[in-house]
């Protein structure tokens, strides 16, 4: 089996205006930098992006916002981005805010063939509006539905031609569950290695969920909040 494509351009081939994308990452940590750049080049418009955050001005999904390629964002937290704020307040950008755990589970459910599930998160808040409420063990829960995407854009640390993936540090975050929920899951890796080099016991996401994989390049890995302590 060989799912290797040459680069990000080949990775996102077939991606069209109006499609729904999942984009891995938490803040700027573990975002698919190469795929995002290729999307800017492709100039695909009216995209719905499911991603925990929306990048910052000039980096991450902020690059797509700058080019007005995103019609709707589905996220849990969207601070730190002036262009996002401008487009949201002017009504150019539709925004659906979802509790972070529900967002993760809705992606996981999408990939796992579970159409919906009950969760206590958001009960009694505006998140629950219009959603079915059921009591389990005397506690109220709301019905949340699975999320799916035409393309899932994923960043992993290591991968092989079968699409087996290993993530590094907290760059893992939403990447595994989104990899499961894409009709076409495109993965960029820092190290594309021979299958023998990956221990099957250590695979985080089996290749069955992955359609395309490529060796990424020129990672900037920008840090959003550089916090350090002094050596004493």
């Amino acid at each position: 089996m060989n799912k290797v494509v040459k680069n990000a351009q080949e990775g996102i081939a077939g991606l069209k205006d109006g499609m729904t994308l999942m984009v891995g990452g938490f803040g700027l940590c573990g975002i698919p930098e190469n795929c995002i750049s290729a999307l800017v080049e492709l100039k695909a418009k009216n995209l719905t992006c499911i991603s925990n955050n929306a990048g910052v001005d000039g980096f991450g999904l902020g690059l797509l916002l700058q080019e007005k390629q995103i019609k709707k964002m589905i996220s849990s937290y969207v601070g730190e981005n002036d262009e996002f704020e401008r487009q949201m307040l002017s009504g150019e950008l539709e925004v659906d805010l979802i509790p972070q755990g529900s967002l993760a589970e809705r992606c996981r459910a999408g990939g796992a063939g579970i159409p919906a599930f009950f969760t206590p998160a958001g009960y009694g808040t505006e998140v629950a509006m219009g959603k079915e409420v059921r009591f389990f063990d005397g506690k109220p829960h709301i019905l949340e539905s699975a999320l799916h995407a035409d393309y899932a854009l994923i960043k992993a640390w290591k991968g092989d031609r079968f699409g087996n993936l290993i993530f590094k540090g907290t760059a893992r975050n939403f990447n595994p569950v989104m990899a499961m929920a894409g009709k076409i899951t495109v993965v960029e890796v820092e190290h594309l290695v021979e299958p023998e080099e990956l221990d099957p016991n250590s695979i985080h996401i089996p290749g069955v969920f992955v359609q395309r994989i490529f060796q990424g390049s020129n990672y900037e890995k920008r840090i959003e909040q550089r916090t350090v302590r002094e050596k004493v």
Partner: peptide
């Protein structure tokens, strides 16, 4: 600091012995 190791406030952090990493779900 390691860009691949942050907390939920997006601040760079470290791990202590016995720590573990997992996905959002």
């Amino acid at each position: 600091e390691d860009a691949d190791l942050i907390n939920a406030g997006k601040q760079t952090v470290t791990m202590l012995p016995g720590g573990s990493i997992f996905d959002s779900a």
